[in-house]
């Protein structure tokens, strides 16, 4: 019998995907239902926004934004 699973398909770069998987594994696999391929995964519909926020937080912590300095330097 064919099964239908409700969820949100998330498409992103492989590098971003690695970060998402990392977030997921640190949170009892609460976000991701299934990893599909390099660039796609199925995420719980209700958790997408929480996942996005975590990702943004993570990027802020890990990546240095070069233009912030540059912008403030100019003005």
């Amino acid at each position: 019998m064919v099964k239908a699973v409700r969820g949100t398909l998330v498409k992103c770069d492989a590098s971003i995907k690695a970060m998402l998987v990392d977030i997921d594994s640190k949170n009892n696999n609460d976000f991701i239902i299934e990893e599909l391929d390099e660039e796609h995964m199925l995420v719980k519909e209700t958790k997408v926004n929480a996942l996005k926020n975590r990702l943004q937080q993570m990027m802020k912590d890990r990546l240095k934004d070069p233009t912030i300095d540059e912008d403030s330097g100019k003005e």
Binding site: M1, V2, K3, A4, V5, R6, G7, T8, L9, V10, K11, C12, D13, I16, E34, L42, V43, E45, V48, K52, L55, M59
Partner: peptide, 23 residues
């Protein structure tokens, strides 16, 4: 914009290849 999200349904466990291809 790093993520592209689409809400919907994943369909799987089709009994035969033909069923899958038709759908």
């Amino acid at each position: 914009e790093r993520l592209e999200c689409t809400d919907g349904y994943m369909l799987r466990e089709f009994p035969s290849d033909k069923d899958y291809r038709d759908m």
